[in-house]
């Protein structure tokens, strides 16, 4: 099997796929949004709870491939407790990484998503939960 494929399906990705973090409905969310990938029929819903300008809680549910599920799970870990400004920075870094513009400033488990950049068709999968998170923030009533 190719090294690139090994890098795409690292054990962190497989773990998050099997046991996604923050994989639940949130009853008292400030906002939520759906993401849909018409190509494979994957769908995700992301919920956000704000406390002032901080992401107090974030969760998701849905169906998707290992990449989209793991990426959404890692997203929730990455932005939980962060300010809106920090969240935007993390989003931008994630986006730069998966589109092959470098992994500068990427920390923790998110590094495991760097393999996606070698598979342009999978960028959509990896981004699904992230875009839904952004949309949930836009919808959020503070």
């Amino acid at each position: 099997m190719s090294a690139e494929l090994e890098e795409l399906y690292q054990s962190i990705i497989l773990d998050h796929n099997r046991r996604p973090q923050n994989f639940r409905v949130m009853e008292d969310a400030s906002g939520h949004a759906d993401g849909l990938n018409p190509l494979c029929g994957d769908q995700v819903t992301v919920w956000i709870k704000l406390d002032g300008d901080r992401v107090a809680d974030v969760s998701f549910q849905g169906q998707g491939c290992a990449i989209s599920k793991a990426s959404a799970s890692l997203m929730t870990q990455a932005v939980k407790g962060k300010t809106l400004t920090e969240t935007q920075v993390i989003f931008d870094r994630f986006h730069a990484m998966v589109t092959g513009q470098g992994a500068e400033g990427i920390t923790g488990g998110m590094k495991a998503l760097s393999g996606v950049s070698k598979f342009p068709l999978r960028v959509k999968c990896a981004s699904l939960g992230w875009h839904a998170m952004k949309a949930a923030l836009d919808n959020a009533a503070p």
Partner: peptide
């Protein structure tokens, strides 16, 4: 529980072209 998109990806690396999706 392996998603078809992941199956197709691994198959592709072995030169096997299949369709995954709806």
């Amino acid at each position: 529980e392996v998603h078809p998109h992941d199956i197709a990806q691994v198959l592709d690396s072995a030169g096997v072209c299949v369709r995954s999706g709806h």
